[in-house]
Amino acid sequence: MKANFMSDRQLLEIMAYADGELDASRRREVEKRIAEDPSAAALHQELIAHSDLLRAHEPLGTVPETREFYWSQIQRRIAAEEQAAARAKAAKAPAFGWLRWLAPAIGVAAVALVVTYQQRPGPTVMAVGEASSMTFTSEADGVTISWIN
């Protein structure tokens, strides 16, 4: 029995029907075709039979290594990947990461500087004795200037 008179689309729809992949309307159409066309019905049967056959006889395999050796290789791979991940994490850290520990100290120093600045006395002018001399002192600039007449 030949199925070659069916179009590609019809062939694929029969397969999709066998796999339960068609929506309701397409399903009804395919069911009608299968009921009316013996070659469609035969193809449908074959697809299901071969699918069942494969699923029931999935090829088996045996790991070609001893249980212990196979497991030891997995262990080593896991350990190697963990080490690589740890190295990558370390490499991502900034080169001067230790500087972050200075941040609180820098903050405190900045506050102290501001307070000191605000409490700083302004320039003072004072007379020296009766010799009509004057002294100008600026602590901020660290300068003292004296005029003596």
Binding site: S72, Q75, A79, A80, Q83
Partner: peptide, 17 residues
């Protein structure tokens, strides 16, 4: 049975932990 800490094993980190 081999263990992660066996001689020659390079394991460290979570697997070892």
């Amino acid at each position: 049975m081999l263990r992660a800490g066996d001689p020659g094993d390079a394991s460290a980190g979570a697997f070892q932990a």
